[in-house]
């Protein structure tokens, strides 16, 4: 697939979603261009994960459509072009006896296709992903023996092994200390700038993410803001998102 920068790679049109009669998302429309680095923020329960699942085709919107590289998500077959790092990976997989390498290889599974065996190209992509994320030395370790941060990296490597064009990260645990946070954000910057990966980063941490991303989406059932992070950092929007009584202290890194 030919991909040029600046073209729309994710288009969300009038998407609404309700669950058991309760409205979770209302009339969401936006688009993401190739090469963008987009932060999706909003309070817990604001529908961030639901929106991501709709973009991935895991949930069907009640109304509206999603297009990926111009194709309706229902007909979009090259799903491995979207690398996805879900929330709470550590809880989900701890029971499985599997090595780091075995987990990262699943990033190729869909690309290889049914009844086919991995080729040298697949092995190379897996190794490259492990090197990029810095988990090559962990490849023979069992995933149950990893720390939360290491497991996070493994799942990012898994997503990268599929050689995606879009990377979607749902509230990654970015590490407890500032040094590892910074390292993590630098890594995402590198993926975006050097490798041209389009990134959609979900977080409830407005503070840090707004310093990192090129474009900010704020979601609380409705799309409250879509634009440059600098403009968002005015009181008006933050009050709209979190209510009047919240006091914000911004750290500039």
């Amino acid at each position: 697939m030919q991909i040029t920068n600046g073209k729309k790679c994710i288009e969300v049109n009038n998407v609404s979603f309700s669950y058991n009669g309760q409205s979770v998302l209302e009339n969401i429309s936006f688009s993401v261009n190739t090469g963008d680095y987009v932060g999706l923020i909003g309070p817990n329960g604001g529908g961030k994960t639901t929106l991501i699942k709709i973009i991935l085709g895991l949930l069907k919107p009640t109304t509206g459509t999603v297009r990926i590289f111009g194709k309706d998500i229902k007909e979009f077959k090259e799903k491995s072009l979207i690398g996805y790092v879900p929330q709470h990976v550590s809880k989900a997989v701890s029971h499985l006896p599997a090595t780091v390498k075995e987990v990262i290889e699943t990033g190729r599974t869909a690309r290889i296709g049914l009844f086919k065996k991995p080729t040298k190209d697949d092995e190379r992509a897996v190794e490259k992903a492990m090197k990029m994320v810095g988990v090559l030395h962990l490849q023979h370790r069992l995933i149950e023996n990893l720390s939360g941060g290491e497991l996070q990296k493994v799942f990012i490597a898994r997503a990268l092994a599929g050689e995606p064009k879009i990377l979607i990260l749902d509230e990654p645990n970015v590490g407890v200390d500032l040094a590892s946070q910074e390292q993590f954000y630098n890594f995402l910057q590198k993926l975006n700038q050097e490798f041209g990966l389009t990134i959609l980063f979900v977080s409830h941490d407005i503070d840090i993410i707004s310093c990192e991303v090129k474009c900010l989406l704020c979601l609380n059932k409705n799309l409250i803001y879509h634009g440059l992070p600098e403009e968002f950092l005015t009181r008006e929007y933050i009050e709209k998102l979190y209510g009047k009584k919240v006091k914000f202290i911004f750290h500039r890194h």
């Binding site: 996805y84 699943t106 869909a110």
Partner: peptide, 8 residues
């Protein structure tokens, strides 16, 4: 969920 997201 990951498998499903990859179209499995």
């Amino acid at each position: 969920e990951l498998a499903e997201a990859n179209g499995i």
